[in-house]
Amino acid sequence: MKTYFIGDLQGCHAQTLELLARIADTATQPYRLLFAGDLINRGPDSLATLRLVFKLAQQGLADSVLGNHDLHLLAVVNGIRPEHASDTLGDIVAAPDRDELVDWLRRRPLALRRDGHLLVHAGVLPQWSVEQALLLADEVSAMLASDGWVAFLRTMYGNEPAAWDDELRGADRLRCIINAMTRLRFCTAEGRMDFKMKESGSAPEGSSLMPWFEVPGRQSAGDTVVFGHWSALGLLLRPRLIGLDSGCVWGGKLSAVCLEDRTLIQVSCPEFRQARGKT
């Protein structure tokens, strides 16, 4: 069975259907779909997109990791965060099947490993091995699956701690894990995260920052890391690195890459959102 990794959908339902049709036309054997998170928000039809992926998952054909927009929906539904002016979550919030969709979404992992490939939405801190990253992701999953998940969401937001320490405990520990796996783009060589730069694929000249995957000695380099979240970076295909956010909602493309042979499948997308201020 083949596996296709798919980048950020962000509520672009028609383009998702087109991409899935292209995959079906190309595939010569059964396949599984793994989405890089941010299934919803910013695009024109978040509800239909979430329902589509949910249905595929119920059929055993797909799964997804959590992205920052997916977590934002959990907070909005529970009254912890207001909808932003640029959000397109209202149809989900008002949907009759909202609770079923939200319950499924909160039980999605932060990280998945398949045949030497680690899938996360944003990144992996350089001091984390793949095995440690998976264990840390499981800690967050256990909290989100627990009876205390709504109370935890109230402590989830914030940029600190910006650096990992094995001695972190409680909400600080889980927040640091979530920020790395759903928000990380740039960090220092020591792994201190920066969340200010959002609209560039490279750090300013002379800065101590660098893309998380270029930190020397990164402990997760033994696996191929697959990620989304970084539309300014665009499609990135390296021997042990796959960046899949090719800016679908910003007028770019929606991308899928086959795990086994690196086949790239893309569909073009209208500009649903202006690129300025994207996150």
Rank of each mutant, 00 (worst) to 15 (best):
G222Q: 08
K196G: 13
M193V: 04
L233N: 06
W212E: 09
G191L: 00
L236E: 15
K198F: 04
S231A: 15
S208E: 15
P204W: 03
D194Y: 00
V226N: 08
M210T: 13
R240L: 07
L209N: 00
P211W: 06
L209G: 02
P216N: 00
G228V: 04
F213Y: 15
F227V: 08
D194P: 04
G201L: 10
D194M: 06
A232F: 08
F213C: 02
S220K: 08
P239H: 08
A203F: 00
P239V: 13
R240M: 07
S220F: 05
R218D: 11
W230Y: 07
P239C: 08
R218T: 10
A221W: 01
F227R: 04
R192T: 09
A189W: 10
R218A: 15
S200E: 15
P216T: 06
A189Y: 09
E214Y: 06
H229M: 00
P216W: 05
E199R: 15
F213N: 09
V215D: 12
F227Y: 11
M210L: 15
L209S: 06
Q219Y: 07
R240V: 02
K196D: 15
G228S: 07
P216M: 00
G191M: 02
G234W: 09
S202M: 12
D194E: 12
M210G: 11
L233C: 03
L236Q: 15
P204C: 10
R192I: 10
P204Y: 04
A221C: 09
G217H: 01
F213V: 07
M210S: 14
S200N: 14
K198W: 03
F213T: 11
E190W: 01
G217D: 01
A232M: 07
A232Q: 07
D223M: 13
G201C: 13
K198V: 08
A221T: 13
D223W: 12
H229S: 07
E205Y: 12
R238Y: 04
L236V: 14
R192A: 13
H229F: 09
A221G: 12
E205R: 15
M193F: 10
E214L: 04
A203Q: 01
P239F: 11
P204F: 03
P239G: 01
E199L: 14
S208G: 14
F195Y: 14
G217E: 07
G191K: 04
S207R: 05
A232T: 03
E190V: 03
E214G: 04
L209K: 03
P204V: 11
L209T: 08
E199H: 13
G201S: 15
L237Q: 12
F195D: 00
H229Y: 11
P216F: 08
S207G: 06
L233H: 02
M193H: 03
M210H: 09
S208W: 11
A221Q: 06
E214D: 10
V226A: 07
V225S: 06
R240N: 10
W230A: 01
